[in-house]
């Protein structure tokens, strides 16, 4: 059942993004930025955690989930360390993904050439 909801929630988020790309002048890069920020705002409003509990990976894997992870990390750090957590929590919580992405970017670029 969790797989079904992951599919549906992940699919719906993609459909929303596709609608924006197809019906407005925004490019996919703009929409990626928009969705990360929206995820952070929805997380701050306390809404995104319900989407996560319904969709599981369907909510955490798309980019709004990245915004959500940033805010969750900040909230956790504020609760633990106070004001400095505003500035430390986000990257602490997402450091695994960002570091892996940059490392993979480097390694793949060393090993492969673009096919065109």
């Amino acid at each position: 059942m969790q797989f079904f909801w992951a599919f549906v929630v992940g699919g719906i988020l993609a459909v929303l993004a596709q609608l924006i790309v197809d019906l407005t002048k925004l490019t996919s890069a703009h929409v990626m930025v928009l969705f990360v920020s929206s995820g952070a705002v929805l997380s701050g409003l306390g809404i995104y955690k319900y989407i996560v509990s319904l969709g599981g990976a369907g909510a955490t894997v798309p980019l709004p989930g990245f915004g959500h992870a940033l805010v969750e990390g900040i909230v956790k750090a504020i609760d633990k360390d106070g004001a400095v957590g505003i500035l430390t929590g986000g990257l602490t919580a997402t450091s695994l993904g960002i570091t892996v992405a940059i490392l993979m970017g480097y390694i793949i670029a060393l090993l492969f050439n673009p096919k065109g």
């Binding site: 993004a17 890069a29 929409v31 992405a101 793949i108």
Partner: peptide
Amino acid sequence: FGGMGAALPITGFANAIVSPAMEFK
């Protein structure tokens, strides 16, 4: 094929990092 279905997940973010890294090497 998938448009934003491929771009929006974290896999699209990774592609956005890896593809220019490879391209502009």
